[in-house]
Design a protein around this nucleic acid. Structure first.
Lengths: 337, 337
DNA sequence: TCAAAGCTCGTAAACGTTTGCGCATTTACT
DNA sequence: AGTAAATGCGCAAACGTTTACGAGCTTTGA
């Protein structure tokens, strides 16, 4: 398992190992003929560079840490895919860590990542407390938050315009003739969910219809929450014609509850989601939803992070991207005529 | 950004930096009172260990590489979750790389990972050619293949008993009264798919019914392949009553085609999948399928890898796990009476 | 009381790179 | 032809750890 090093090459090439390093790194201060000769020997002997030694002297690892709650969550995994691809384009690799929605674990892996000397960290917060939880640590390494809006906190983040998303969504529902639209979500808690609720709320007011917000004891990223709220609703006869779920996962829960209660979507009630996770476009689901531009968010996140890394004085940036309405078939046009 | 090192600690503690190292590492050859003193100073000065320096001298990084085709594939992401958790339990972190179903990329990231000195690599092959593609490289670092059966190749892998899975599945369909069962998959190509097809084929023979295997030009892990095959089938009036898809993704494609063609599942035709990906249990899908024990496979993979790492002479191991039948509601009982 | 053994700690080498500095040789310019 | 600049390469330090070896001191046992 002893692998061949730069010194071994130097020995057989009969040069100093500094020269070998220069041949490999494409330095100019080396003759063409020696470079060729050294490179050939490298190939012949099967030399592979040692990045950790390199990291040691360069004081950079070309490694980025990615902390997500659960990589098996479809939103997270899609983000992770694009983040990894973008990072690698720039010569960076990714260390993946699951925090499992556990704040202590989140802190642990964060510290682990700084011990591992990652050049920067991308964090998809597990919940609203993440920022406060990590506050003492984020000064140790460039960090960017993804998907969670930190309002005007002095830290870099990229998120979607949540307010506009729900605003746009309820306008669409209105245009389909819906006048009694329920919202599954909450006005307190994370900024993200505040903004989404406000967007819905304000749109209702502007359109002259009554807002109606439901909440759950479960987290809003779970399907259980959606089922729970929907079950409450489905017991009594309903005056509403549409449900706007703050999250695609919630919408999935609504689907499940509707299935049980024998309520049809969209025939009996229309359903709109938010996020456009992979699940949303599955056959039999075809959820109309508000899309977070995940690929754009991912590339923006690594670009911002890389800028922070190369220019330590670059401050912080807030990048808010535009959501788009994805029309599928979970919302029905109920206008007569 | 200058971080505090072991030497800084040594200076203020007035000891040699070897002593500091010993205090940190829990060595016995150090006095209790000095250990306490040094540790306190470490806390006060906010010392964080440098893993890359440590890796340099220890000749181990405590890093595992994970190569998947696409982390946003639900099967991959679920595996990745469990692999990461298990690895971290043992003090290892994960470097995540997507190969994007590209053999060249797969080789590139593999080489990258060995340059980064990972202690081992877990590989979820993007296709049947992966093994041959990587053959010259896998001698450089302990490697274990996951989910792909390498038959009797001298490399470690963990997979499910694919033969038994489809065998069991068609027996179940038979028990529901189905006598004309189509199989979407192929008998050539990857060993995994050979075995699955054989399991179906042999079960049919044993049960005295006619096997009927369909193939596609698309990869069998895609939903397009499922749609393509289903569309072919759905045009003509059908004598068959059930479809066994070699993959849940294929089954999803069947769902989609059925939706278009106005064919109901399971009323008109029963549908069985394989893998039990996250999608399979979604409302309105509820796919009856054969489960790959993903968590078990994941932990087995890292355990096997860790054994290879710690004991270089341990050879290789093939771990075949038992699949289980997950009954949901895509298969109907068509026995009369 | 003295040698042997046991603690605690410092010295220095090693891990595989990169790079500033200096030296020798070659090239260019007047 | 003589000086100045450019080129090609070696030397050695540095990055932050771990650990074998040895030195000095204290304890133990006869």
């Amino acid at each position: 398992m002893k692998s061949v090093t730069i010194k071994d090459i130097a020995k057989v090439a009969n040069v100093s190992y500094a020269t070998v390093s220069r041949a490999l790194s494409g330095s100019t201060e080396i003759g063409e003929e020696t470079r060729e000769r050294v490179l050939k020997i490298c190939r012949d002997m099967g030399y592979t560079a040692n990045y950790v030694a390199r990291s040691m002297v360069m004081k950079e690892t070309k490694l980025l840490g990615l902390i997500v709650a659960n990589i098996d969550n479809p939103f997270m995994s899609e983000m992770a895919y694009h983040i990894e691809m973008r990072a690698r384009e720039h010569g960076y690799n990714l260390m993946l860590c699951n925090s499992s929605h556990d704040l202590n674990l989140e802190r642990n892996v964060f510290e682990l990542l700084v011990s591992r000397q990652v050049d920067g960290i991308i964090l998809v917060p597990s919940n609203a407390e993440s920022y406060n939880n990590l506050k003492p640590l984020i000064s140790k390494v460039p960090t960017v938050f993804v998907s969670e809006n930190l309002r005007d906190l002095p830290e870099s983040y990229v998120s979607v315009d949540n307010y506009r998303g729900t605003h746009m969504g309820t306008e669409y529902l209105y245009s389909l003739g819906h006048r009694n639209i329920l919202y599954f979500g909450q006005r307190k808690g994370s900024v993200t969910h505040q903004l989404r609720a406000e967007g819905y709320f304000d749109a209702c007011k502007e359109l002259g219809i009554e807002p109606n917000i439901f909440n759950s004891t479960y987290p809003l990223s779970s399907v259980q929450a959606g089922s729970q709220m929907a079950k409450q609703i489905f017991t009594s006869p309903f005056p509403y014609t549409a449900i706007f779920a703050a999250t695609d996962s919630l919408a999935l829960g609504v689907f499940a509850a509707a299935e049980e209660a024998g309520i049809r979507i969209p025939e009996d009630v229309s359903l709109m989601g938010f996020d456009n996770i992979l699940y949303a476009d599955l056959p039999r689901i075809r959820l109309t939803t508000i899309e977070q531009p995940k690929k754009t968010m991912a590339t923006a996140a690594v670009d911002i992070l890389l800028e922070k890394i190369t220019d330590e004085t670059s401050g912080y940036s807030h990048r808010i991207l535009m959501p788009t309405l994805i029309i599928r078939s979970s919302c029905r046009d109920i206008r007569q005529g």
